[in-house]
Every structure is written in structure tokens, then in C-alpha cells.
Design a protein around this nucleic acid. Structure first.
Length: 244
DNA sequence: AATAGAGTCAACCGCATTACA
DNA sequence: TTGTAATGCGGTTGACTCTAT
């Protein structure tokens, strides 16, 4: 026996909401509050599923919801929070006033993810690693040399060695045999680390970036093959629990 | 001007979690 | 303590819009 359906699909309306439906929903929430979604449609005179009403309210009608383009600052924050929380959209949304989890999820899947993949040079990946790492780099020149040496390598194990060279905590790296709870421990260790370490690491990379003019123009993916390669690296780093 | 493909986003679906009798 | 209902959430879909040809 399967789960009891939340509503009778034959009797409820589906698809885009009309202005009149929005008005009825808003009035009903104003009167009864944000609760009893199951019975709300009946009380409001709406031929809608309760879940649909709840979604419409929290994603669109609720006062204070920001509409329009997501700013660069917000985007940076989303990337940072996604590094920290993963696909926990509601958690991420809690840190962006006026934005909904659904909106952030959509933006991530349509815009940010594409940017990361298209702009996913190995050095950019290093930038992503350092955002989530509490470690510092011993020397900027040292890092540049190591990145340059390995830039053309197709051997992933060499990059793993580089991560060790960069003083990444062993706990940060999850081997294929480890469980996600191990990764969670590493996560909590990272997030509890002093911000100054992150700042130092960030500064080091930015200095290299500026001084040596290694930017998008050099490493930007120009072909589908490049994108495939970048995606491969991106996935590999994610798999090893480094850039998450 | 027509059209195909890409991008965007609101809404749906079903599983997970929480509340409560 | 347990079973059921209600709610929350993330993944996915599909309609609509935009852009390139």
C-alpha cells in the first residue's frame, strides 16, 4: 500500500497562480497565520493543494521577499555558503534576507554552476579550495611553482600531493573508502578555525593572481574539451571532499 | 520574420522529518 | 512508544522568454 495522497489531484487546480488566487491566499494567511496548510485551501475558497499554497506563499507572496537580480555580493555569499553547507538551500537562504531557497537553488543551477564550470581552470579550483580551507601557504612563489609544474598533468595523484604540499589538513581529504560522517568532522573543524588563516590564504592566492597575471584570460575555457576537463577536475576535488 | 536552442524560474513531486494523538 | 498527519525540503519538470541564426 502506498502513501496516502495529500490531495485529490482531480479536484485541485494546478499551474500558474492567478491574481485572484494570490489575493485569496494572502487574505487567508493574514487571518489564520502561516499554519494549517492542509485546511487553508478550503477556508480560503481555493481549489489548490495545501502544499501548493504553502509554496506560493513562502516563495512569492510573503512580505519582504526580494525580487529581481541577485547581486554580485549575494552571489559570492551563495558560493561561500554552498562550500560550507552543500545543497542545503534553506540554510543558505537563511543567510540572505529576502531570498528564498527555491530562488537560490534556481540561480545556482542555472547561473553559478555554469560559471564555475566554464571558469573552472585549475587555479580557479585552487581559489575555491582556499575559500573552504583553514590552511595557509608557506610561500606564494612556492605555490605558483607547484601549480605551474602540475598545470598540464593528467595524473590526479600528483594534485593530491600538491594539496598536501599546500598544508591541507589530512582530515579535509576524504578517500573513497571513508564515510560522510568523517567528512562532517572535517567540515566542523574547518568552520571552527580562525578566520585569519583563511584570510591569509586568500591574500596569498590573490597576490599570485595579480602579480603573475594568471587570470581568466589565460585559463578561461575556450572549448568543450576544456569544459569537460574542468568538470572532471571539479568533480574530482568535490569527490575528495576538498572544495565542498 | 521565423524558428530553434538556451536560459530562467515558478510549480510540482515525493521523500524526510517533525508534531501530535 | 507508535502510528499517522502535517510540514519542510531538495530534485525535477515544463512553460515561458530571450537570443542567435
Amino acid at each position: 500500500m502506498g502513501r496516502k495522497p495529500c490531495c485529490n489531484k482531480e479536484e485541485v487546480r494546478r499551474g500558474a497562480w492567478t491574481v485572484e488566487e494570490d489575493r485569496l491566499l494572502a487574505e487567508s494567511v493574514a487571518t489564520h497565520g502561516e499554519a494549517k496548510w492542509r485546511t487553508l485551501p478550503l477556508n480560503a475558497g481555493l481549489r489548490r493543494c495545501g502544499k501548493s499554497c504553502r509554496l506560493r506563499w513562502f516563495n512569492y507572496l510573503k512580505p519582504g521577499i526580494k525580487r529581481g537580480n541577485i547581486s554580485v555580493e549575494e552571489e559570492d555569499l551563495i558560493v561561500e555558503l554552498h562550500n560550507k553547507f552543500g545543497n542545503k538551500w534553506s540554510l543558505i537562504a537563511n543567510n540572505l534576507p529576502g531570498r528564498t531557497g527555491n530562488e537560490i537553488k534556481n540561480h545556482w543551477n542555472t547561473t553559478i554552476k555554469r560559471k564555475l564550470l566554464n571558469d573552472g581552470s585549475k587555479l580557479n579550483i585552487m581559489r575555491k579550495i582556499k575559500r573552504s580551507s583553514p590552511t595557509t601557504v608557506n610561500s606564494s612563489d612556492d605555490l605558483l611553482t607547484k601549480v605551474s609544474e602540475k598545470e598540464n598533468s593528467t595524473d590526479h595523484s600528483i594534485w593530491a600531493t600538491l594539496l598536501q604540499d599546500l598544508d591541507l589538513e589530512p582530515e579535509n581529504q576524504m578517500t573513497s573508502g571513508e564515510t560522510s560522517s568523517t567528512a562532517s568532522n572535517a567540515e566542523s573543524q574547518r568552520t571552527s578555525s580562525p578566520a585569519t588563516n583563511n584570510d591569509s590564504f586568500l591574500y596569498d592566492i590573490d597576490v599570485i593572481w595579480d602579480d603573475h597575471h594568471i587570470g581568466n584570460s589565460t585559463f578561461y575555457s575556450k572549448t568543450d574539451d576544456d569544459c569537460e576537463d574542468n568538470l572532471e577536475w571539479f568533480n574530482w576535488f568535490n569527490f575528495n571532499g576538498v572544495s565542498k
